[in-house]
Simulated scan of single mutants.
Amino acid sequence: MPDATTPYDLAGLRVVAHPLRLRLLSLLTAEAFSAAEAARVLGESQANVSYHLRRLAQVGLVQLVEETIIRGGTAKRYRHDPASGEVLGSGHADEHQALMGSLAAELIARSARYVSESEFVFTEAQVTVSSEAWKRIREMSREVGKLIHDEATPSAKPGGVRISATLALFEVSTDDAAPRT
């Protein structure tokens, strides 16, 4: 995988603009899974999950962490490195919109499982801030993302709290009439 200063080409952004791949990245944060294991958890076919895992691996969003011989075959287990998303190239507006569309669809799907008695944290903003504040906001957001991923545990672990988090920060044009393509 390239280091954090090396941008991926647009293929990386296209890869994550798919709902199943977003679900795989979440699943592979807490523990490593093979395609067969991930397929069982996600209710998908092994062939479909295997294809999407290969695509995620091609752009460095998941890493092969273990190979195990099972019944004469090799099970490859992958894990998601949450820092890998930092190096995706920003791409063109249409690529960015495809990613945001996938994130929005996944957020809507997750919201169906919202525990209504739980505490809800929400922020929505399109504002202007100082360049110093923008830098601090990005740093704090990276820290929150790292904490979420570092503390992720297998979903079967007793006493765990299942959460959903989606955070996308990006600069926008100051021209409200800017093209949306």
Results as ranks from 00 to 15, higher is better:
Asp9His: 06
Leu10Pro: 00
Gly12Cys: 01
Gly12Pro: 06
Leu13Asn: 06
Leu13Gly: 06
Arg14Gly: 12
Arg14Asp: 12
Val15Lys: 06
Leu20Gln: 02
Leu20Met: 04
Arg21Leu: 00
Leu25Asn: 00
Thr29Asp: 12
Ala30Gly: 15
Ala30Asn: 09
Phe33Gly: 03
Glu37Gln: 13
Ala38Leu: 01
Ala39Phe: 04
Arg40Glu: 15
Gly43Ser: 05
Glu44Ile: 05
Ser45Arg: 07
Gln46Thr: 07
Asn48Leu: 09
Ser50Ile: 01
Tyr51His: 12
Arg54Glu: 01
Gly60Lys: 04
Gln63Tyr: 09
Leu64Gln: 11
Leu64Gly: 08
Leu64Glu: 06
Glu66Ala: 11
Thr68Tyr: 08
Gly73Tyr: 11
Gly73Cys: 09
Ala75Gln: 10
Lys76Asn: 09
Pro82Cys: 05
Pro82Arg: 04
Ser84Val: 01
Val87Ile: 08
Gly89Tyr: 05
Gly91Thr: 11
Gly91Leu: 10
Ala93Pro: 13
Ala93Asn: 14
Asp94Ala: 02
Leu99Val: 01
Met100Pro: 00
Ser102Gln: 05
Leu103Gln: 07
Leu103Glu: 10
Ala104Asp: 03
Ala109Asp: 15
Ala112Asp: 05
Ala112Gln: 09
Ala112Pro: 01
Arg113His: 12
Arg113Gly: 10
Val115Ala: 15
Ser116Tyr: 01
Glu119Gln: 14
Ala125Val: 05
Thr128Trp: 09
Ser131Trp: 02
Arg142Ile: 03
Lys146Ile: 08
Lys146Gln: 15
Ile148Cys: 12
Ile148Ser: 07
Asp150Lys: 11
Glu151Asp: 14
Glu151Phe: 13
Ala152Phe: 08
Ala152Glu: 10
Thr153Ser: 09
Thr153Ala: 15
Thr153Leu: 15
